[in-house]
Design a protein around this nucleic acid. Structure first.
Lengths: 261, 261
DNA sequence: TCAAAAGTGTTTGGATTACACCCATGG
DNA sequence: CCATGGGTGTAATCCAAACACTTTTGA
């Protein structure tokens, strides 16, 4: 809510609010997450999620702040004409993170609002703003702690990855990992990479077509590559799936990398 | 993240952070939400969600802040010996809400972190703190705007209710609406009230028992009431359900009250 | 004409529904 | 002994996994 304890309004404690982005893409055979190398004091030189402070003067709301930071630090998510194929990035909020002393700067409490961002095989990021460097890293490297992250960013990546894996089952989230026009093989690849399991191509194709709404054929096809050309699809509005795409061995949660919430 | 634009650290804009609670319970034949009547300036006299400012000095993290505010404003969620049957309240974070000017107080930006809280048929709340009054109201009254709420609290209730309805399908969330020991009839009632649809008792009972893990029999039974005594169950650790409890007419989203996200 | 990748059918076991029926208790 | 809920059994149906096969292209 937005209420204080009347006694003295000046006692209302102030926080800095930051947005942190867990940006995922599928490149090659791995789910990758976008990291920046910090250019200054807290955790200087360490890898972290892109993000920064929300500024009420610049940002009309939290999503806008997230968009702005993504552009500033990594050059991604531009809607300018420069980036020929519009690499649109889907942004959605995950949740807020704060515990006392979460940010080591003394006397400064920082609450973070984490965002999940997803895009099709995205270009190399361009470091900017506070970021000394920006790069894609396999999400697995973060989840297994082969790469340590600043702040509680590992937790955020963990939560974000779990959300992605879960929502693949009952939403059209997977279509955000492929370009505007895509083939069923590409879509299947997204599922296989993120779940780390092989799916039956034939059953998958049928499901996708039968309970449509989810995707629509464009009539066009691929060409040039060897093998029979594939039909090209675009996503259609529907997000919630009526019936889940079942993950194999669903009963036996195969722990390994993927610690769920 | 927790990074600023180096130039001048003093320019880091400060927010007040509040926690707002969407507390749900099932009383009688309706899903009810806990409201408080505001005792002061912004939206004075209007109904709102319980909540208040996070104080880094009092609260170690966001959940604790939410717990504290719930107690202060409504007297619920006490873990003292006073409340004989421990009316435990499940708390979990939903997401953060902020847009410029979300709080009408000039020069004061307030970011809210919304929590979903669920408890079994809870006692009457006792107003306290800033709350002039506290009461249970049918969630439907809020969703249909029969009752107007302060700030963006209607949106929060909408989002929270959608989350509850959705998670009833594939998690053990329903067990949070019933007392520690409960009968299958009580659990069924929760589903029927929240979904607003009748389920087949016999199929429901079987599902609950077959894919156990979800609930465990205590061996004991009810007595005193007319009819055959019912077996008493307790929830068991499992939260995620392997297979969803399907809502009837799932294909045809019956809009009415329940606007989904 | 062969390799490679796309795409279609068909069988089959298991899960879900819909519905009939029996059980245990209080009054 | 009957009304009131609690709880089990079963056939018909639907779904989805498993698997074999055809189609269309490039080289």
């Amino acid at each position: 809510m937005s209420d204080e304890h009347s006694h003295d309004a000046n006692a209302v404690p102030r926080f800095a609010v930051s947005v942190d982005l867990a940006v995922f893409t599928v490149r090659g055979d791995a789910l990758q997450v976008l990291l920046v190398r910090r250019g200054q004091y807290p955790y200087e030189g360490m890898w972290a999620l892109p993000g920064g402070f929300v500024r009420a003067d610049l940002d009309a709301n939290l999503e806008r702040a997230a968009q702005r930071e993504l552009r500033e630090e990594t050059g991604l998510g531009m809607h300018s004409a420069a980036t020929a194929p519009p690499h649109e990035i889907h942004l959605e909020q995950l949740r807020a993170y704060w515990r006392r002393g979460r940010d080591p700067r003394p006397g400064q409490e920082v609450a973070a609002v984490a965002f999940l961002a997803i895009g099709p095989d995205l270009p190399e990021p361009q470091a900017g703003g506070d970021a000394a460097e920006a790069a894609w890293r396999p999400a697995a490297d973060v989840l297994t702690e082969r790469v340590a992250l600043a702040f509680d960013h590992q937790q955020i990546v963990r939560d974000a990855a779990a959300e992605v894996r879960r929502r693949l089952e009952d939403t059209a989230l997977a279509t955000l990992f492929v370009p505007t026009e895509f083939t069923l093989a590409e879509l299947l690849h997204v599922y296989e990479v993120i779940w780390g399991e092989r799916l039956d191509k034939r059953n998958f194709y049928r499901k996708m077509k039968e309970w449509g709404g989810f995707i629509t054929s464009t009539g066009r096809s691929t060409s040039g590559r060897s093998g029979r050309p594939a039909e090209l699809y675009v996503r259609s509005g529907v997000d919630e799936l009526r019936r889940p795409i079942l993950r194999p061995e669903r009963s036996a949660p195969q722990g390994e990398l993927w610690s769920e919430r």
